[in-house]
Amino acid sequence: MVRQYGLDEIGTISRARVGKRYAVEREADERKFFHKLAAAMNDIISRESVRAAIVAGPGFTKDAFVEFLREKYPELIPKVKIDNISSGGRVGLYEIVRRGLVERVSRENRVSFETSLVEQLMMEIAKGGPATYGEAEVKREAEVKRAASLGAVERLLVADELLRRNRAGVEGVLEQARRTRGKVIIVSTEHDAGKQLSALGGIAALLRFKV
C-alpha cells in the first residue's frame, strides 16, 4: 500500500513454479493463485477503504488476472487500474511510484469521487431531498450552518476556491460538521464538478435527514 510515509508492504503471495505440467493443470494452478490474490485484494480494499488498486507487471499474467477478476470478482473491477512495468517484486513497486502511476491514478480517482458527490448533491437538490447549499456571507449559508449545528451533515462539500478566499468565514461550519461526525470533502475547482459546486456558492451538504 502507498501511505503518506511511503510504501507499506503488507504481504507477499507467491506462486510455486513447477516443471513440465499439462496445460489443464497449469491453468488450475494459476486460478488457485488468482483466487488467493483476489481474496487478499478484496480484504485489504475493504479493511483499508482503498479507492484504487494498481495491477502491474512485465508480462501477460496481469492481463489474465484482470480477466479473472472480471469473471469472479466483478465488484473489484471499478477500482482496478492496469499498467506495464519492466520488473516484478519490490523493484516493480518502486518503479510504479517512480513513474508517477500512483499520482496519476490517485488524481483520476479523486476527480471521479468528487464528481460523483456533486452529482448526488445536484440530484438531491432537484428532488428536494436531504441536501442544502449556500453562499458564504449571504443568507443561504445559514441553512448549512443550521444543518451542521443539528448534526444533520453527513458530507460537507467545500470548494477549494472558497477556502482560499474566505477560510475564516467557513471554518466554523467545517469544525461543527467534524464534531458531529460529518465528513468534510474539499472539492477542486479545476474540474467541472468543482465549478458546479462553486456556482452554488462553494459550500453544500449531503444530509442524514432533512432540516
Rank of each mutant, 00 (worst) to 15 (best):
1 M>R: 11
3 R>H: 11
5 Y>A: 14
5 Y>L: 13
5 Y>G: 07
6 G>V: 05
7 L>F: 12
7 L>Q: 15
8 D>C: 12
11 G>T: 10
14 S>Q: 14
14 S>E: 14
15 R>W: 00
20 K>W: 07
22 Y>R: 11
22 Y>F: 11
24 V>M: 11
26 R>S: 15
29 D>R: 10
30 E>V: 14
30 E>M: 11
31 R>H: 08
32 K>F: 03
35 H>I: 08
36 K>E: 11
39 A>K: 13
42 N>C: 10
50 V>C: 14
51 R>E: 10
51 R>F: 02
51 R>W: 03
51 R>K: 10
56 A>H: 08
57 G>K: 03
65 F>P: 03
69 L>C: 04
70 R>A: 05
71 E>Y: 00
72 K>N: 12
76 L>Y: 07
77 I>G: 04
78 P>S: 09
79 K>P: 12
81 K>F: 11
82 I>P: 15
83 D>A: 14
84 N>Y: 10
84 N>T: 13
86 S>G: 04
91 V>A: 13
93 L>V: 10
93 L>M: 15
95 E>G: 05
95 E>C: 08
96 I>H: 04
97 V>L: 13
97 V>F: 10
98 R>G: 14
98 R>C: 11
99 R>I: 07
105 V>E: 06
105 V>R: 03
106 S>T: 13
107 R>F: 14
108 E>D: 15
109 N>Q: 12
109 N>S: 14
109 N>W: 09
110 R>A: 06
110 R>D: 06
110 R>Y: 00
110 R>Q: 12
111 V>Y: 09
111 V>S: 10
114 E>V: 09
118 V>L: 04
121 L>M: 02
121 L>N: 00
121 L>E: 03
121 L>H: 00
123 M>Y: 09
123 M>A: 14
124 E>P: 05
125 I>W: 13
128 G>W: 05
131 A>Y: 10
132 T>R: 01
132 T>K: 00
133 Y>W: 13
134 G>C: 02
134 G>Y: 06
138 V>S: 11
139 K>F: 12
139 K>V: 13
140 R>C: 08
141 E>T: 04
141 E>H: 01
142 A>W: 07
142 A>T: 04
143 E>M: 11
146 R>N: 01
146 R>P: 00
146 R>Y: 06
147 A>Y: 03
150 L>I: 06
150 L>E: 10
151 G>V: 01
152 A>I: 02
153 V>E: 00
154 E>S: 14
154 E>W: 09
155 R>S: 04
156 L>N: 04
156 L>C: 00
157 L>R: 01
159 A>D: 02
159 A>I: 02
161 E>S: 11
164 R>N: 04
166 N>F: 05
168 A>W: 05
171 E>P: 03
171 E>S: 12
174 L>G: 01
176 Q>L: 12
176 Q>S: 14
177 A>S: 15
178 R>H: 01
179 R>V: 09
179 R>A: 12
180 T>A: 02
180 T>R: 04
180 T>P: 01
185 I>P: 04
189 T>K: 00
191 H>M: 09
193 A>R: 09
194 G>M: 01
194 G>L: 05
195 K>I: 09
195 K>Q: 10
196 Q>L: 10
197 L>K: 04
201 G>E: 06
203 I>C: 12
203 I>T: 09
206 L>I: 13
206 L>G: 07
209 F>G: 02
210 K>M: 09
